[in-house]
Design a protein around this nucleic acid. Structure first.
Lengths: 238, 238
DNA sequence: CGGTGGTTTGATCAAAATCAAGTGAGGTGG
DNA sequence: CCACCTCACTTGATTTTGATCAAACCACCG
């Protein structure tokens, strides 16, 4: 059930088998959620955290003028609102991209577990810190990179993150985002995303069609993107 | 010594007096650092966390092409690299804006304290989560707001954060940033910041000169900035 | 077969970047 | 005490990137 999550924890922490078992044992309520459905909203005060078991989700905010900004793209095995454990009010929305299977775990249960098992507490804390590291990189992305690099950068990031959970095929991966969604994550208009995408396609760098992203060379992509995976903190043992 | 930090914790958590005392008792090495001096760098593996006792600091990243992006502005009472407790390698730089007094606390000491006092652990975890919430808002800021709103937004944010630690005068506060620094936090060029600033000045919204920011009306500022303090999570009891 | 959601194209416009050159205040040294 | 240096800010002219507006196009689906 929590396979992807455990897979990520195994790769990125040194949790003992007992700790992992205790996490496995956390009571969880599983729900299927339709594609493109908001399921936690700004202003909410959740009493549970969710774990994405299957599918993709995004966190987003919308400005006064109705402009949406996607803040994070979440893949299976991630807990997009883990922060709600300690921040009572949601300051943004959480919605599915594709049809998702989502597990809900009560705050109480997690709090109990973290009090009993400090290593689990550290591992979860760490999860939220990696989240923050990704936010930081995204600030750089929208603040200081041009449209082409921006697009290449999110693709490179997703590639590395999907690799850890085994959802990366050789030179492509599935991504249920429209050009409109991409625009909202990159701080661009969909029209411009379309044009940049065409250029990247023409240059043989990357292609996005039918919800799959493919790229010829990871190195080439990284170079265009100014991508350095350090900020993902996926290889903590080094 | 840790006055500002304790002041923020008192305002934002329900830590017991013993917990607060235990934090006060943490051994800390105090250093004075000159203005505009980097003191933690990308790639470093810190063995201590720092606490800003006096002065202002920023976190930043620099792209391949040498463009700098400021990720956060830190004020007295904040711990800019608290995340290094669980993320071993720094993924960005930390440097002073003004002359600073900085306290350094060993990771070991903090780890010991958090194991003994789960409420302290939660409070520190929470600190890093608020940090992340600010990053999220900054993504929106650079991604979806025009130059004027962007500038107004950071000013509004700093106003609210400085209020908590008592460094906000009625309608102005000190901020040791140049227009170049502002440009690097807003994802703009200094020239453009200058022009936007002139307009805001002319409109009587806000003025920045000689390292002090003044504004006529907080409401007016917030409106221009599309600012809603919710994301700062400064009033957790509501 | 028409509707719908997503993508593409073209034309025009605006925001912000770039290039280049001042100004002006504060600090230093002759 | 004044010349000069430096750093920050300012101004103007021009260009670029990406936004906006408007209209096809296209594939999938009921």
């Amino acid at each position: 059930m929590k396979t992807f999550f455990i897979r990520r924890l195994r790769a990125q922490t040194q949790l003992s088998e007992e700790d992992l078992a205790a996490i496995e044992a956390l009571p969880m309520q599983v729900k299927d959620i339709e594609r493109r459905t908001p399921f936690v909203r700004e202003g909410d005060r959740p009493s549970q955290c969710c774990l994405i078991l299957e599918g993709f989700a995004v966190r987003s905010k919308t400005t006064d003028e109705g402009k949406r900004q996607i803040l994070a793209i979440h893949i299976p095995g991630e807990m997009p609102d883990l922060h709600s454990l300690h921040l009572k009010v949601m300051d943004h929305d959480l919605s599915t991209l594709s049809k998702c299977q989502v597990g809900f775990i009560n705050h109480d249960a997690i709090h109990r577990l973290t009090r009993e098992r400090p290593d689990v507490a550290s591992a979860l804390w760490r999860e939220t810190l990696v989240d923050a590291a990704v936010f930081r990189e995204w600030i750089v992305n929208v603040g200081r990179r041009d449209a082409t690099a921006r697009l290449a950068h999110v693709v490179a990031e997703l590639r590395e993150r999907l690799k850890v959970i085994g959802l990366l095929q050789d030179h492509h991966f599935g991504l249920p985002m429209t050009q409109m969604d991409l625009a909202d994550t990159l701080g661009l208009t969909p029209i411009h995303v379309n044009r940049v995408l065409q250029q990247l396609r023409k240059d043989g760098v990357l292609d996005i069609k039918k919800e799959t992203v493919s790229f010829a060379s990871a190195e080439r992509l990284d170079h265009i993107a100014d991508f350095d995976e350090l900020y993902l903190h996926q290889h903590p043992m080094q």
